[in-house]
Design a protein around this nucleic acid. Sequence first.
RNA 1: GCAAUCGUAAUCUAGCUGGUUAGGAUUCGAGCCUUCCAAGCUCGUCGCCCGGGUUCGAAUCCCGGCGAUUGCACCA
Length: 572
Amino acid sequence: MRMKTEVNSNDLMSVCKRRGFIWPSFELYGGVAGMYDYGPTGFSLRNNIVEVWRDIYKGREGFVEIDSETVNPREVFKASGHVDNFEDLITYCTKCQAPFRADHLVKPFYENADVLSASDLEKAFIEHGVVCPECGGKLGPVEEFNLMFKTTIGPGSARIGYLRPETAQGIFVNFLNLYRYNREKLPMGVIQTGRGYRNEIAPRQGMIRMREFNMMEVELFVDPEDKDWVRFKDIENDILTLVPNTGDETVTMSVKEAVDKKIIANRVLAYFVNTTRQLLTRLGINPEKLRFRQHLKDEMAHYAADCWDAEVLLSYGWTEITGIADRGCWDLSRHAEFSGTELTHFKKFDEPKEMEVTKIIAKHKALGPKFKGKAKDISAAMESKTPGDIKNGNLTVNIDGEDIILTDEFFEIATVNEKVSGERVVPHVIEPSHGLDRIFYSILEHAYVFDEEKGYAVLRLKPEVAPIKVGVFPLMEKDGLDVLAKQIYEKVHTPRIEAYYDGAGTIGKRYARMDEIGTPWCITVDYEAFEGKDAGTVTIRDRDSSQQKRIPIDSVPSVIDSLLTGKPFSDL
RNA sequence: GCAAUCGUAAUCUAGCUGGUUAGGAUUCGAGCCUUCCAAGCUCGUCGCCCGGGUUCGAAUCCCGGCGAUUGCACCA
């Protein structure tokens, strides 16, 4: 069989559009770059991808799933760092129009150029004589550009909101709810699918960089001192293809070896790198076109402590489709700081410990007469301080914005024995974050083959993700063949197994149509179903080999079922 | 956002030195035919990206917008 497996993304997009996988959004009105709608087959494929992901994280790992808002108040992204980190200060050359990151231009003159404001930068251009590096022209005003879509919440413009650039924050801001729900235990895994939004300057490469995109995000909260995973030993000998950030070379080694050699930071991160490999290959990503690349130190996101990208080889080159990051305690610490609420895990000691603690004890007798009504607040504030906070014998507390300086007539330092049953720790977060649209597109590229003998494209989708599982045809739409075929269709078509009845045109055309949308099997009712030695049977055709076998009519649903659960066609 | 190239039906494409009923192929639909891999025949549906300008007349020339591809920049 002559097969062409190289993909031209235009050919693939043609098939996708014609066969209802994806459509450029708002084409009726000229289209909008970086936005796509999913058609019936595409949405079905996408849902199947999500189901496999769910099966692994919710099923095997026992994580819980939530759904949170896409519009978030500004505070959330102020805390997460997105407001500042997503906002670039841009300037354009007044002569050649070339755009530049304003802070990059003054980097040589400042230790920390990225803290400068727009007006600081404009002054800095004049002060240091900075001109356009391209043509020497004068630089224009410095403008803000934020990659987040901005909106307002409620009438007026009182409250600023942003469309979320990632779903993760919805999990972090619900940490306490989730933690209670999880009966205050770690590790705690939470998953969420949903849309994210980034106002890309120049969306390119089709579905690879979209302005509105779908994510499947996993946030795993772990004890910072216990970065292991229960099922690690089950997979420690699985083989990973890695590109560590120490060089450019690709290495293959077992998960265990990668951890032992400290290439991957810890066992839990390594486990989920491997889980990502399992997920992607199960979905139909070609294992030979899959690798995990470690982020370079300077490439790491503002929140990441270590990060590995799953990259697949597409017609566009190696493309990131999933990131597995150790976000450390960044997000929870920041939200704790900005919200003023403690977001910690109470880690119980095996045995309560007797500890000697030196602490500040407020002298209420002295405080009361002097501070009257404020005394209660002051004493509470004092006791939350430690002896280390005493400066020059005085202790300063802040009550309602007012600094109150207290001399040692108001407190004493005492050493007491306390029973401590545990400590509070900020959990670390392991985050496998999947770009659903990119995975979707990668699956299509890796499934696409052009069958030169047949003269049309075939999508060799894994049965588990194929939008339609089985086509049901009468050889001719007459002589009762159609009646029987419709009966069979009614039996196999269920909410879980999508079947497709087609009686029009020639049989070859109907097979071709199913091949093109990746339907793995077709049932055909022919005349032998009614007479001769094969009476009571129909044929089942395999997409990838075009082979056919005869199976009893009554067994059709169970045969499809067993094929779907992995039985090879050749074993029928 | 800049530059270059491009934009004709669901898809692929001819026409684009201004005047065509805008041509073909595939797909799609109806029918005939047909006993397993896009067969054949008949009929049919659907199109010049949008807006302005030049002109007696614009798919065709000019300008702007939108979209696509590529390069630059950007991609936390």
